[in-house]
Amino acid sequence: MAEVLFFLTAIATLGGAVGVIALRNPFYSVLALVVHLISLAMLFLLLRAEFVAAAQVIVYAGAVMVLYVFVVSYVGGSEEPIGVGPSRGFRVASVAFGGALFLVLAIAILGSGLKAIDSQGAPYVSGFGSPGAIGKLLLTDFLLPFEVASFLLLVAAVGAVTLARRRGGLETPGELATYSALDFLRPAGTGTMAEGVGGRRRLPAATPESGTEDARA
């Protein structure tokens, strides 16, 4: 039973991986990666890593892939033109590179001195890979890596917002001509964050009436 399940999921995993690099439309590549990730989570389950499998499905197939889908739809998912890709020689060279890499890794697996590599692994103890066991390790032995990882996530979130933010404020004339109700309601001498970075031109912080005249003028 485990063998059948292993080969089915391994074929799905490899099929998804090949689909990622073979499909021309980036949107389909993302969907192939979702297939790959979900079948990889099943492989994790076969290895008794229950918490990692659940995290894989939730974090990767759930959150990260949604981010990818949004960006692909935003950027437009430009298909690569058929004729303009890398030259044929380069394509053959990269396939040969991949084959050679696999050869090296296969030699490493076959020739390794690890005895247990040809076994089913260590005897299963109840609770192996459960969220409780992982959580206990994360909060005791691996507390520092855990905290560093959370800090890294914070830095990445701030960095992504900084990179992808809209520079130069609202530049289209249509947007410059519109006023929101907040422009007139807010106290004199205050500003928005967009103005703070020099993005958006603003009413002279005076009475609301002068602002409306500017808008009509």
Partner: peptide
């Protein structure tokens, strides 16, 4: 899977 990914990065 690693080799497929490495080939994809190149092509």
């Amino acid at each position: 899977i690693f080799c497929v990914g490495a080939g994809g990065v190149m092509t």
